[in-house]
Amino acid sequence: MTDLNSLYGITPPHSEVIDACTHIKPCSVLDMGCSSGRNALYLSQLGFDVTAVDSNANALQALQSIIEHEDISNIDLRMYDLNHAALDADYGFISCTVTLMFLDPARVAAVLADMQAHTVPGGYNLIVCAMDTDAHPCPVPFPFTLQEGQLGAIYQGWEMLKSNEDLGTMHNGAQLQFATMLARKPL
C-alpha cells in the first residue's frame, strides 16, 4: 500500500483511526472534519467507502486533486458545516478526531446526537477531543472542550471498546488532556 499521506506531504492518519481499524471491517465511514484528508486517504486504502466532510473549501479542493490524481473512487467529498448536525445518511463507522473542539459549543450536543442517530446498529463512533479539567487546564483556547466523564455519559448504553481521558500531544506540540472513545452502537 502506497503511503499517500507521505507522498503528498499530509500529516499521518490519526493513531486512534489506525487502532480503530484493527476492530472495524471496511464499511461506510464518515470522516467528520476531514481537513487535508489524512484519515480519509488511509481509510480508503483499507477499502472503506469514505464520505469526507469539512467546511474548509481549500482543504477539500486539495484533497479532490489527490483523489483525481490517484484515481480514487471510494472517497466522496462534501462541503458541510458540522455545526448543522443534519447528516443525511447512515454509517457503519463515524470518525471525529480532534474536531469537536472547533465547533460552536452550543451545537456539540446536537452534533453528537446526530452522529449516534446516523450510526447503523452495531456501528462505531470514534471521538478524540480536548478536555479542560482542574488537573489539566487546556492550554489552547478552543471554543469547546469536554469535561471529565462527559463523553462516557453521552454514550451510555453503547459498548465501550476504548475509553480514556489521558494526556496527549497535538501535532503542533501542545500537550493537553484528551477524551478518547471508540464505542459500538447496540444491535
Rank of each mutant, 00 (worst) to 15 (best):
P121K: 06
G157M: 03
I154V: 14
D132P: 12
T133G: 11
G123E: 03
V128L: 05
P141E: 04
G122S: 04
H136M: 12
A153K: 15
P143C: 10
F144M: 04
D132W: 09
Q150I: 12
T133E: 12
A153Q: 15
W158K: 01
H136E: 10
F144P: 02
Q156W: 00
P139N: 07
L146S: 05
P143D: 07
P139C: 10
M131L: 08
F144G: 04
G157H: 05
L126W: 05
C129S: 14
L126T: 08
D132N: 15
G152I: 07
L126M: 10
L146P: 05
A130E: 08
F142Y: 15
V140D: 10
D132C: 13
Q147L: 07
C129G: 11
H136S: 11
G122R: 00
F144Q: 10
P121G: 03
C138K: 04
L126P: 08
I127V: 15
Y155A: 00
P143I: 03
T133P: 11
F144L: 08
Y124P: 02
F142K: 07
P139M: 09
Q156T: 12
L146C: 13
E148F: 09
Q147D: 12
L151I: 14
T133I: 12
L126Y: 04
Q147I: 08
I127C: 00
V140N: 13
W158G: 02
I127M: 00
P137E: 12
Y124K: 00
E159H: 15
A130G: 14
Q156R: 11
C138I: 01
W158L: 01
G157N: 04
C129I: 09
H136F: 13
N125K: 00
D134S: 07
W158H: 02
V140P: 06
D132T: 12
W158T: 02
L146N: 04
W158V: 00
P121Y: 03
C138M: 01
D132K: 10
I154Q: 11
A135N: 14
G123D: 06
L146H: 08
Q156V: 03
G123M: 02
C138D: 05
M131G: 06
N125E: 02
C138L: 08
L151G: 04
Q147N: 09
G157V: 05
C129A: 14
L151C: 10
H136G: 01
P143V: 02
C138P: 10
D134H: 09
P143Y: 09
L146Q: 09
F142D: 05
G152H: 04
P141M: 01
P143S: 11
D132Q: 12
